[in-house]
């Protein structure tokens, strides 16, 4: 596995220092592939979205790191954003773009190892795959791409962000899958539905709405437990 990293800072000296640290001090596995950029305006949306971890300076004169992050989020939500700054101010903008960490330039060497390790951990979790047998063939899909699993008699139906794979049905038991995926952020909102919490847009005592607009029923009897699990997950990094 290779981790693609972008370091974007108009301060060329600092960008070089950060890139060097990433190349020299990170473990071999996963191998980091670091790109340095000192001109944020030269970054296209396609190029931005190719990275797994982006170190963005907040204050870059003509283009702020927050603006870059907004552009990135319009294209994809998977990459981790670490804002590099002289002066950290936690604000609604950071939440809006899903900032992973804010790194003070003055404490780079002190904080970077822990932040980088935490970022790798999140990436590893996101790369986890789900396996299932379809017509005698073993299939794999990234957990993050699953919206929800639906129970239909003895079959389980897969609903995913990828329309080509959505609707695939295979033999399986909801109870077993529910237990297997509990630690991976899946929540049994109803006896027939096992939902990926990462894709929940809204949850109340009657129904839950997913990112793609699907609305599913919620078990009233188990609602307190469902809500608590959902909140716990939301508050984890």
């Amino acid at each position: 596995m290779t981790v693609r990293i972008l370091v974007c800072d108009d301060d060329a000296a600092f960008a070089a220092r950060l890139s060097r640290w990433l190349r020299e001090n990170t473990a071999r596995e996963p191998q980091p592939e670091v790109e340095t950029c000192t001109d944020p305006l030269s970054l296209t949306d396609a190029r931005l979205s190719a990275f797994d971890i982006l170190f963005l300076d907040i204050d870059m004169g003509r283009c702020s790191g927050i603006e870059l992050a907004r552009r990135l989020r319009r294209v994809q939500a998977r990459s981790l954003l670490i804002f590099v700054t002289n002066y950290v101010e936690y604000s609604p903008e950071g939440y809006e773009v899903g900032a992973f960490r804010f790194l003070l330039k003055s404490r780079l060497e002190e904080k970077l190892p822990a932040y980088y390790a935490a970022a790798l951990e999140v990436l590893r979790r996101r790369e986890a795959v789900y396996t299932y047998a379809l017509n005698g063939e073993n299939c794999r899909i990234r957990l993050g791409d699953i919206l929800y699993l639906e129970s239909r008699g003895r079959m389980l139906c897969l609903h995913t962000t990828d329309p080509a794979r959505s609707g695939q049905a295979f033999y399986g038991k909801m109870e077993e899958e529910s237990r297997r995926l509990a630690e991976s952020g899946f929540l049994r909102v109803h006896k027939s539905y096992l939902v990926n919490i990462a894709h929940i847009r809204r949850l109340n005592h009657a129904e839950t709405e997913l990112d793609d607009g699907t609305v599913l029923p919620v078990s009233r009897r188990n609602y307190p437990t469902i809500r608590t699990t959902y909140l716990n997950w939301k508050c984890e990094p």
């Binding site: 002289n86 002066y87 950290v88 101010e89 936690y90 604000s91 609604p92």
Partner: peptide
Amino acid sequence: QQNDRLLFVNTH
């Protein structure tokens, strides 16, 4: 001097 952090959080 501004690096002496005065404001960490701004939630409005």
